[in-house]
């Protein structure tokens, strides 16, 4: 995608594959599998994670940048 000129950013919760695959820009959250974007029904948190992730399109300082987002999964 990047080689074709399209900047990309990932929102992910699995650290090892993100580091291994060298995403051009990635935001990491501490969310369980199946809940990458945020807890069900919590639109406010989902929006916050998406805003922070999308900001990396411009703000990531260098290739393969990984930003750890401040995240906490409250549900069970």
């Amino acid at each position: 995608m990047e080689a074709a000129g399209i900047p990309t950013v990932a929102l992910a919760n699995l650290r090892t594959p993100v580091l291994r695959m060298k995403y051009p820009r990635a935001a990491l959250v501490r969310h369980p599998r199946g809940g990458t974007v945020g807890e069900p029904g919590d639109a406010e948190s989902q929006l916050r994670f998406l805003r922070q992730t999308l900001a990396l399109l411009k703000d990531a300082p260098d290739p393969a940048h990984v930003e750890i987002l401040n995240s906490e999964w409250k549900g069970t």
């Binding site: 950013v9 992910a12 995403y23 990458t36 999308l54």
Partner: peptide, 19 residues
């Protein structure tokens, strides 16, 4: 094929959400 679809839709940036 996905790159071609994105180009066809004139996408400027891509958000990828793995599970």
């Amino acid at each position: 094929a996905i790159v071609a679809k994105m180009k066809e839709m004139e996408v400027d940036a891509l958000l990828h959400i793995p599970v």
